[in-house]
């Protein structure tokens, strides 16, 4: 079980809850969220995300990450007042507060 703020990611059942509410995700969206949630606060570059969630063949296709993050955001962040998914322009995406801060 991974916890970031009020977000819960159950790695066994692959269920995601936020503030006690269940969130339905597609397999790719789940894989992306799990990858980000495993290292809260850390910022991942698009290349790292692609290599982990997709595979090498998708390299160079950086907007695929942006599109999936946007969809993930609409499910995980939009209905809630605090935003968890963080964009660091030029670097990539992270979940939760920056570890540096």
């Amino acid at each position: 079980m991974l916890r970031v703020g009020d977000l819960e990611v159950d790695r066994l059942s692959q269920h995601v809850k936020r503030a006690g509410r269940k969130i339905e995700l597609t397999p790719k969206e789940y894989a992306l969220l799990e990858y980000l949630a495993a290292n809260p606060g850390r910022v991942f570059s698009r290349t790292m995300i692609i290599e982990h969630v997709w595979d090498q063949s998708f390299e160079g296709l950086t907007n695929i990450v942006d599109v999936y993050v946007r969809h993930l955001r609409s499910k995980v962040d939009d209905p809630f007042p605090t935003k968890l998914i963080r964009t660091v322009r030029g670097v990539g995406y992270g979940l939760g507060e920056s570890t540096d801060a």
């Binding site: 910022v43 660091v88 322009r89 030029g90 670097v91 920056s98 801060a101």
Partner: peptide, 23 residues
């Protein structure tokens, strides 16, 4: 550039410039 960009003390302008540099 990445480690610079993650410095929270940065001004918004600098952060934006770093971001576009990184892109």
């Amino acid at each position: 550039l990445e480690s610079l960009a993650q410095d929270a003390q940065l001004k918004v302008n600098t952060r934006e410039s770093l971001g576009s540099l990184l892109e």
